[in-house]
Amino acid sequence: MKGRLARWGWSLFAWGLILLVAAPLVWMVATSLKPEDEVFSLEPALLPEEPTLEHYATLLTETGFAGYFANSATIATATTVVVVGLAVLGAFSLARFRYRGRETIASAVLLCYMLPSVVLIIPLYLMMVKLGLANTIASLVIAYTSFALPYALWLLRTFMAAIPAEIEQAALIDGASRMGAFFDVLLPQALPGIISTALFTFILAWNEYLFALVLVNADDVRPLTTGVMTMLVSGFNIEWSLLMAASVMMSVPLIIILAFLQGYLVKGFGAGAVKG
């Protein structure tokens, strides 16, 4: 009896703390659904009394939000495809081959993974201007590989190194080529790791702010991060309900990932983040 009570108390306490952590996000959703007079109220209710979707409608029809959203989707998808493609082959090389310079490359990748973007931003800006790529979607995809590729490579190398090499060796003895064994044996086993890496890369690119701030200042190529911030600055009165609606919409891909693919994210943490 005492044991069960203690467990109840524990669960209640835990959930209290979790809700405290989640409170800003609950408030974000609540604000986005409140009519204007409930938002600017001196005695606010936690939940909207008359929930409305008007801010979402305004967001999609009267602001540049839909365009920013499309740009972000393009940039994040392109970055993910390029980065995961390169990293899968690179990680295969680092995990399964022996050659001179391999350890040097692995160390360099780790060093890159910790490099501050702010160091690269000035040279990359100059480079994009020189190449005539300033203010293009391509400039952001190129810039994003600078942080996403080392990350993806490190993550995938750890995943692949954890897969036993025996089955591959058996396939090689049976006459398969190295690449044949890679595609038929290693790749299927590494698939969960690849999905996890792709999700991480997508989220990183979707959330990036600094490069977008410096490399792009045209509204038709701007991604969500800088686009939504211009909505904050440009309005005379800050329309918080509109910004909260934008925040919710911007988080939709993440909510989908957390709801259905959470296991992959947690796996990625365990692999790349903590093991050196």
């Binding site: 996000l25 959330n207 969500l224 988080s251 993440l254």
Partner: peptide
């Protein structure tokens, strides 16, 4: 959620 949500 806080970790993965955009800083913006």
């Amino acid at each position: 959620f806080p970790y993965f949500v955009s800083t913006v």
